[in-house]
């Protein structure tokens, strides 16, 4: 089958490794060959966390510059930083909620204006889906379900050949009972958000 290369970027604690792994499991359940790549070690120390899912016949676990078919950005600054992974046909799904790094607090840099950043991203690639993932996760009843919102948005974008039912099945099998409802809700909010994304020029988000 056609290869799909998906890159996930976020910040330690946002759960993008778990999201990537979940998608990998779902691929397997759907009979699609998949390989996942993770970087461990810094996940709980506020650093950048990047992971990848390669679906289809390719066997390389990582994605080179310019070769991501989809970039799922859990945070706007990190999405901007990962633009080098994209080409003009890349679909970018971005959570517009900023998490300023500590360097900004101690005056070692300025967090970019989110609206301008989204504008830059929108001009660079063919398709941008922006959503306030943190707000949707909170609405689902668990701020930690941001990763499920983002997985939902990826499925809702219809850019990979996986349907929502397979994902829901995988989520149900791998989630603790206490979080299952909120995770499934968050996943559905993500799908809906992909169908009616924010207008990037009017995100209303201040950095």
């Amino acid at each position: 089958m056609e290869t799909k290369r998906i890159v996930f970027v976020g910040v330690g604690g946002q759960g993008n490794l778990l999201a990537t792994r979940l998608l990998g499991e779902a691929c397997l359940a759907a009979g699609i060959p998949a390989v996942v790549s993770e970087i461990h070690g810094m996940a709980q120390r506020g650093g950048i966390v990047e992971s990848a899912l390669v679906m289809g016949d390719a066997t390389s676990p990582i994605v080179s510059e310019g070769e991501a078919d989809i970039l799922v950005g859990f945070e706007p600054l990190e999405t901007l930083r990962a633009l080098n992974k994209c080409n003009q046909d890349t679909v970018i799904i971005v959570n517009v909620h900023p998490l300023p790094p500590f360097t900004v607090a101690i005056g070692q840099g300025v967090y970019p204006d989110v609206d301008k950043a989204l504008e830059t991203i929108r001009n660079a690639v063919s398709s941008l889906i922006a959503l306030d993932g943190d707000e949707l996760a909170a609405k689902a009843g668990n701020p930690l379900s941001l990763n499920m919102v983002m997985v939902g948005a990826l499925i809702g974008s219809k850019s990979i050949p996986l349907d929502g039912d397979v994902l829901k099945d995988t989520i149900s099998k791998t989630t603790k009972q206490a979080f299952l409802d909120s995770n499934l809700k968050a996943f559905d909010f993500g799908i809906a958000a992909a169908h009616s994304p924010l207008d990037p020029s009017k995100s209303g988000i201040k950095s």
């Binding site: 633009l83 080098n84 080409n87 300023p100």
Partner: peptide
Amino acid sequence: TSPQPVEVTDVPELPGRPPNLC
């Protein structure tokens, strides 16, 4: 036949996000 990375000229200098003691 490699795809070309996007060229973005108007990205400001991005603040670093080094790992930090918790």
